[in-house]
Amino acid sequence: MFQLAAGLIGFYVIGRYVWPLKLGVIAKVILSAAVLVVAEHQWLVSQIAGSMASPESPRWLIIGFGAAYGALILLACFLALKDLLGGLLYLASRSAGVRVLAGRRLPHFMAVLALSLGAWGTSQAVRVPEVRKLELPVAGLAPEFDGYRIVHLTDLHISRLFHGPWVDAVVDKANMLNPDLILISGDLVDGTPEIRQNDYPPLGRLSAENGVYAVTGNHEYYAAFSQWIEVFRGLGVTVLENEHALIQVGEGSLVIAGVPDQIGPRHGQIGPDVEKALAGRPGGVPVILMDHRPGGAGNNQAQGVDVQLSGHTHGGHIRGLDLLVARFNAGFVSGLYEVGGMHLYVSNGAGLWPGFPQRIGRPSEITEITLRRSS
């Protein structure tokens, strides 16, 4: 379905921009073929090296395809808006509608703008994320946890694109915050441990007084799931699979719970069960839940969760397109939400899927969350 949609976008751009160009037929055919290669590059690369989830082509090629693909998507959106406007004008004035629909100057401007934004969006996607800070009031929080600082990481997508030096820089930034706790809400890696053996080791340097905890995202299941769980645990990361841990500071306590991604059963693994994850927790102690996808927030709140930390959406990648991403995630895409009294924080993520490395108006982030006692 994904490749079909990408192909249709490619043919739309060919029909509405490439073919009307004042070029010879051979030039149009070559340019059309290039558009289709860009549209289907994820599938084409997967046939040569790696997979759709983890392309193993050189980093410069992933960046180049990412910029071109982003430009293609943006140009298709611009052309669609032009055609919609032209169609509406046509209903009021045939001549005005035809001028918009058939005009060539505006599409050329759109193409230049799309190429520029595509290159810029990729540069924003691959940079080391900035720190985003917020304070969360939590009901029932013990005095000892007032001012408690959590670094939330998600969607690292360690890969050919987000390789060892990038991971090293992210770990350094997280550690410089000197957090009390580090929580990672899924999609840490793409590919196998063998392929990523030079990229993931910096995760072992993550340091927090009360430890490092994580849950799995959907990408952990696409290759060597069981091996990755052992790798994470070997690096000192506690992976919570429908489990919780009790963090104690002085006389105060805090429950940290985690559920695996919902794609687990398709790969012969367990699925999320928040009731099981919270079974046996002490009463009256606030609960922070890691759930990779934000869509289950309503159910999680009903189970007694006070704060949910999620990722998965990458913030929607691009302002405007994030509205579409939100529709597939129960309306949640980026930032802080209130769900029946529960705080849901959806991080834009530190990295993203290498198949669409675009960020425009949705910057990557390392999130520092400071807990406060609720009044």
Rank of each mutant, 00 (worst) to 15 (best):
D199L: 09
G271E: 06
S253P: 00
T216Y: 01
E243T: 05
S253L: 09
G236S: 00
V274W: 02
V255T: 04
L206M: 12
E241T: 13
V215N: 03
T216F: 01
Q269T: 04
P260Y: 01
W228D: 11
Y213F: 15
V231L: 07
A223S: 14
Q269N: 14
P201G: 11
V255H: 04
L278Y: 14
P272N: 11
E251R: 13
G234H: 09
G204L: 05
R233G: 08
I263R: 14
L278G: 13
A245I: 14
A224V: 00
P265G: 10
P260S: 01
N218L: 02
V237N: 12
D199E: 13
L235I: 11
G258C: 06
V231Q: 13
P260R: 01
V231K: 12
L278E: 14
G264H: 06
E230W: 09
Y221M: 00
E220N: 02
G258F: 05
G258Q: 08
K276P: 00
V274N: 04
G252Q: 05
P201K: 07
V231N: 09
L254M: 07
H244Y: 14
S253Y: 09
V249R: 15
A223T: 00
L206W: 07
V215C: 05
G268Y: 10
A214M: 04
V259F: 02
Q227L: 13
I270G: 12
V274Y: 06
L246A: 09
K276F: 02
E243W: 06
S253C: 04
L254E: 04
P272V: 09
G271C: 11
A214C: 06
P202Y: 02
R266I: 05
E275W: 09
T216E: 00
E230G: 09
H244W: 05
P272D: 06
L254N: 04
L254K: 05
G211D: 07
V255F: 05
I263P: 03
G234D: 09
R266V: 10
T238Q: 12
F225C: 00
P202R: 03
